[in-house]
Design a binder for these strands. Structure first.
Lengths: 221, 221
DNA sequence: GTTAATTGTGTACATATAACGCAAATATAA
DNA sequence: TTATATTTGCGTTATATGTACACAATTAAC
């Protein structure tokens, strides 16, 4: 009985990225793999995920949700091992932390375009996970879990664009998101990132979202 | 490691119903419970579900999908047992079969309004399952899996009405479903069920649905 | 043949989505 | 300092979709 955690991060530079670790032990020693490990007898599945992630990558995840349970008898060469996969999101601040220290370490971020070969059936787990993320982001506001607490609107726009894999009309997108009333526009301006006009910072208003949700509101992008 | 199967059925009389078994052994001997049992070492999770269902109820399910994995350490009084819950749908023909033979047996159908107290954390599993069924039926045509191969349109209408728990405008509903082109209207008429004008029979066209899906069509009711 | 139950159909209105272009603010290079 | 490239920010119109709503036709039972 193991748990695996498919963890996504986001940065303006690279877009959406995946957290992987390099395995220290056989089987698949030296291969890149999704972080995870065995569940202890007295801990819940969620606790196991958070513990393994902490041990292997030092990261604190921001959002965690059960993805799927993989149980084909032959999926692990050692013996019958059933794995409950979770999928998690981290704030882009955390993303940068790991990034600065792990180039030569055992944990690193990978963009979808530069994925290494993965151990076990982790490629399949990843595919299910990407599909879920893509699907979910259109009807639950989980995109915010990938951004900083305060972010320029363009971050949100680029996140959705890269995740959905299709161009987004900025005007219609903004109109829609703002009309839901779950984004607060702050007085601060983003600090310039090179070229162009700096925009306002925005912040997700979870309290408002929860209230709307309770009243039967239907989020959809 | 166990699997559990939350199986739904539908009949014109009772609407949507849930399949339960009466436990023969401790713990919870004599209680009603969701069918399920231990996974054998060399079988997949899906195989385990189908085997257990066959053993305990004799039913063949028509649609099976993994629901959620429940792993709280204290959920089973015997020891740490993780259970992968599936959710399944059976055709209303099958529904009637079981119904005719099991009144005094160990397996039976229950409407949501007349549910007995359930063993283990099965009430929680059921709740997750109902939520999933409700949510899914609006964006995937799984409702057909509960009906006969051929059915009068009113069956579909009643199924959606009772499942979504809100009245459905027959004209708008029919307009929408028919405009998707995934329902074929047959030449046969339904045989009368007591009173009223008999309507045409309809049939789900899975081939068309798959084709539309591949072309990026978006099912939603 | 009268009644009660059910099926079957169309139109007008409101709402939501999609398409589209240009001006303002900033950094950098000339 | 001026020109250029880059990014933000905004509003209108056309189209599509969803919603509300009423009455005639067919059958079984009485």
């Amino acid at each position: 009985m193991t748990v695996d955690a498919v963890v996504f991060g986001y940065s303006r530079m690279d877009g959406v990225s995946l957290l992987l670790i390099k395995r220290k032990y056989d089987p698949f020693k030296g291969s890149w793999a999704i972080p995870g490990g065995f569940v202890l007898d007295d801990e819940s599945l969620e606790d196991a995920v958070e513990r393994e992630l902490q041990e292997e990558t030092g990261l604190r995840i921001n959002y965690l949700e059960q993805l799927y349970t993989f149980g084909k008898p032959e999926r692990d060469p050692r013996s019958r091992i059933v794995s409950v996969a979770y999928f998690g999101l981290v704030k882009s601040t955390q993303f940068q932390k790991l990034r600065a220290t792990t180039d030569a370490e055992e944990a690193a971020w990978f963009t979808f375009k530069k994925l290494p070969k993965l151990a076990f059936d982790h490629k399949k787990i990843l595919n299910v996970s990407i599909e879920r993320l893509r699907g979910k982001i259109t009807y639950q506001p989980i995109g915010f879990e990938l951004l900083d607490k305060k972010f320029p609107f363009s971050d949100l726009e680029h996140l959705y664009g890269s995740l959905l894999g299709r161009p987004i009309d900025r005007r219609n997108f903004k109109k829609k998101v703002m009309s839901m009333g779950i984004l607060d526009e702050l007085d601060e301006k983003a600090k310039s990132t090179g070229a162009g006009r700096p925009g306002s910072l925005f912040q997700f208003n979870k309290a408002t979202y929860d209230r709307l949700l309770k009243n039967g509101m239907h989020f959809e992008i």
